[in-house]
Nucleic acid binder design. Structure first.
Length: 440
DNA sequence: TCTGGGGTCCTAGGACCC
DNA sequence: TCTGGGGTCCTAGGACCC
């Protein structure tokens, strides 16, 4: 059996945890750059504000109903997420952290010891709420896909009080019939259109499909597994998270700029900063990367036809996690793809092809790579320590700093040219000394 | 004026190898 | 007319997830 614990409206709930006055009123949280709606309270959903909608399109609705609006505060959400996950790691023998706000618990053979899994789930839910003020729902089922489905039904049906267990076939049939096919985990927009056109409207309909049908219409083996999981046959194992942290196969840092940019120096600063961030994340998970991709994008909503993005990928001679290496490779790639006279609105750096740091895999017949310079590695360690202590980006490579102010008489825009808007951000009350709550 | 930022897995096709 | 049968690696792209 699996349990899926999923936080309700996670970003909004994090804001509410420190501002109880937000309870009961409509609240939304915005994406980076204050562009789109990415989290909504139940009251905001009821007003018809949709997930992913651009802020400027719903502004009338927001003003009319006095919806509270917040820029995203990832320092706060990340910290709240670890609090929730740390507790879950204590509370269950096996935990897979699936995202910032969701975790699968492995409950194989646990019913013997726990008695009712549903009672256990209710206890977990109450504990998470008491410790963090974050509301959750829990779904229990023999497969991950059914646990997701159970969780969804628990969220929608208030009489269930946040927990639904699908341990019996009867319970499963009942739940499958209630869920529209587009709400099944793994059915997105494209598949939903196709399925409805063929008369498959609910999860129960989908669970009755043949293996051949699933393979043909739902992306091959992926779709076949999806249908099997709905039928109650597990195809996905738990992937337990070590140390309560996620370990990635790729790491990206990509951003829309605060305003469109056409100066190479400005874009170069952005790319250097993104490469630095990506390198930090890479070191934190103890990996080195072999492959580096840089891309720059023009406005995809503008009149110009696609493609809007230029990118290039580089296989590095030696896998590395050094900020200095990655910044210099990244800016070299940028110089190859940047075109003068064009205006760019976004850039990104993506790292791939990971190995564990300190033990690169040697391929047969290849010469051993040069050892990482101990000095460079010590330097990166100091860099990470300083930034942990004095705040992110306290120490940076010079390339990531904004270029020098322009000569007098020309008007220089204030601040870092590529940095985005954050007009509605709350303080990082749990992670920043400067922004701690003052009581008194 | 204003439109996010991460990730995953899978497939197909081409180059190349024996 | 007929024209092997595997492999691997890489890239691009699609679909999905939170």
């Amino acid at each position: 059996m699996f349990a899926l614990v999923d936080c309700n409206n996670f970003y909004v709930s994090c804001e509410r945890a420190f501002q109880p006055a937000l309870n009961g009123v409509p609240v939304v949280v915005l994406s980076n750059n204050d562009g789109c709606i990415v989290s909504r309270s139940a009251e905001a959903k009821a007003l018809g504000i949709k997930m992913g909608e651009p802020l400027f399109q719903v502004r009338p609705l927001i003003e009319q109903h006095r919806v509270k609006v917040f820029s995203s505060n990832y320092a706060l959400y990340g910290d709240m997420s670890s609090r929730v996950m740390n507790y879950l790691t204590e509370a269950a023998p096996e935990v897979e952290i699936y995202s910032a706000d969701e975790a699968f618990l492995g409950l194989h053979g646990m019913a013997r010891y726990l008695g009712s899994l549903e009672t256990y789930a209710r206890r977990i839910r109450a504990e998470v709420r008491q410790r963090t003020h974050i509301p959750t729902c829990v779904g229990i089922a023999p497969t991950k896909t059914l646990a997701k489905l159970a969780n969804r039904v628990a969220k929608k049906d208030p009489t269930l009080d946040g927990v639904l267990s699908l341990e019996t076939p009867e319970a499963r049939q009942w739940a499958l019939a209630k869920v529209p096919v587009q709400d099944v985990w793994g059915i997105g927009r494209q598949y939903a259109i196709k399925l409805h056109a063929q008369g498959i409207a609910t999860a129960a309909d989908l669970a009755r499909c043949s293996d051949a049908y699933a393979r043909k219409h739902l992306g091959g083996v992926v779709g076949a597994r999806l249908v099997r999981e709905l039928q109650g046959f597990p195809c996905h194992n738990l992937a337990p998270s070590e140390d309560g942290a996620l370990s990635r196969q790729s790491i990206a840092c990509t951003r829309t700029f605060g305003r469109p940019l056409n100066e190479l120096a400005d874009i170069c600063g952005a790319v250097a900063a993104f490469a630095s961030r990506a390198a930090e994340k890479l070191r934190r998970q103890g990996s080195v990367a072999h492959v580096l991709t840089v891309f720059i994008s023009q406005n995809r909503f503008g009149p110009a036809p696609p493609p809007h993005t230029r990118s290039a990928q580089l296989t590095l001679p030696t896998a590395t996690s050094s900020t200095l290496d990655l910044v210099s490779y990244a800016t070299a790639i940028l110089n190859r793809i940047w075109q003068p006279g064009q205006t760019y609105v976004k850039a990104g750096v993506i790292l791939d092809g990971f190995e564990a740091a300190g033990q690169p895999q040697l391929s047969l017949f290849e010469k051993a790579p040069e050892l990482t310079h101990p000095q460079a590695s010590a330097l990166m360690q100091r860099l990470d320590q300083l930034n942990a202590r004095f705040g992110r980006a306290a120490v940076q490579v010079a390339a990531a700093l904004p270029s020098q102010p322009k000569p007098r008489g020309t008007k220089a825009a204030p601040g870092v040219p590529w940095q985005g808007q954050q007009q509605h951000r709350t303080p990082a009350v749990t992670t920043s000394w400067d922004e701690l709550w003052e009581i008194g």
